[in-house]
């Protein structure tokens, strides 16, 4: 690890999901406090790897997203006094800045009956803007605005630590973020701690060349983080980092925000619908009656609960065409069994 690298971490801080994740009825519970201490150890390791490594941490809270820590901002006042001789100064600054901003935000959360969806999109786009500015600043080599970051920004990457299920209304913004990450050559890694597999984050990791790892043992988080996510992508090619098993390319329909595997697509604007509609709600194009009748006839029967039929048996004719296609995860043992592909939507949480 000779070259400095930039890491942006997006931490999912959904209170209800963390409550569920920490419940002792889980086989391997991971309470928020344990999670934070493991995460801090990982972040410390990142800045310790190279003096010039940069770091920014975003929190995705219900309905908003905030910057928790950034190595580009000046060291706050309270750390200018005499240091604790037993701690390394940068660690101390990082840890207390993070913890202070998290506790501030968590206390400010109101006890709402209905928790608004977490601001994952906001956190993702903010980290992209941050990386964009860092790369701009380095390309013009003008350290404008007191940015004390490094001059070059190689291998920027974003690590998303997620516990919440997919928010299907954020399908388009997430896809847009993925494409801009591709343009900026940013790698998106995903560490899924809890909850159902995330279709969108799987696609994000796949399309940007990152790793998507679903933790079988959330309580062993630190080990996963240091083994898989600490080395920058360039180094990772030489290591045997667990790769993604399957990528689920399902999309969210525009009408009900269901996640569908077979959709009806408007030929004019490419909007996706979960059932044949007479008029496109996006571009207001009317579709021919003939098409509607044809599609209604050929539509997969009863879209809602399409028999949770057992997937593995290779009995049906088409199934036998793909001899021995794996239904369960293989190899590395790090990937959790994926939910049945036959369900049309993710299990409700």
């Amino acid at each position: 690890m000779d070259k400095p690298s930039h890491l942006s971490v997006v931490v999912d801080l959904s209170p209800s999901q963390w409550h569920l994740c920490g419940q002792s009825s889980n086989s391997h519970p991971l309470p928020l406090s344990a999670f934070l201490s493991q995460l801090l150890a990982f972040l410390n390791a990142h800045i310790a790897c190279n003096d010039e490594n940069t770091l920014s941490v975003y929190g995705a809270l219900p309905g908003k997203s905030i910057l928790l820590y950034s190595s580009a901002t000046a060291v706050p006042e309270e750390f200018t006094g005499p240091a604790d001789p037993n701690t390394y100064r940068p660690f101390e600054v990082l840890d207390s800045t993070m913890m202070n901003s998290i506790s501030d935000r968590v206390e400010a959360l109101t006890d709402l009956e209905q928790e608004p969806p977490i601001g994952l999109v906001g956190a993702l786009t903010k980290s992209l803007c941050y990386i964009n500015r860092m790369s701009n600043a380095s390309s013009t080599s003008t350290a404008a605005g007191g940015v004390q970051g490094p001059v070059v920004l190689p291998d920027p990457r974003i690590l998303v630590v997620s516990v919440s299920p997919d928010e299907s209304s954020s399908y388009i913004p997430i896809m847009n973020s993925i494409f801009s990450a591709q343009k900026l050559k940013v790698t998106i890694d995903v560490c899924k701690l809890y909850g159902p597999e995330s279709v969108f984050l799987q696609q994000a990791a796949h399309l940007t060349g990152g790793s998507y790892i679903y933790l079988e043992r959330p309580d062993a988080l630190l080990q996963y983080l240091t083994m898989a996510f600490l080395p920058p992508p360039a180094v990772r090619q030489l290591l045997s980092v667990p790769t993604q098993d399957k990528v689920d390319f399902r999309a969210a329909c525009f009408c009900h925000k269901n996640i569908v595997d077979i959709g009806f697509v408007c030929s004019v604007c490419l909007s996706i619908f979960c059932q044949p509609v007479p008029v496109c709600s996006t571009c207001r194009t009317k579709f021919p009656i003939k098409t509607l009748q044809r599609l209604n006839a050929s539509k997969p029967a009863a879209p809602a609960p399409r028999t949770p039929a057992p997937t593995p048996p290779a009995t049906s004719l088409p199934r036998s065409q793909s001899i021995g296609t794996p239904r369960s995860s293989m190899g590395n043992g790090l990937v959790a069994p994926s939910p049945s592909r036959n369900g049309t939507s993710l299990p409700p949480r």
């Binding site: 595997d261 697509v265 194009t285």
Partner: peptide, 15 residues
């Protein structure tokens, strides 16, 4: 204009 039925696949890795 027309409405087209499309399927979104699952990608299998080379492992």
């Amino acid at each position: 204009a027309d409405l087209m039925m499309m399927g979104f696949p699952t990608r299998l890795p080379n492992t």
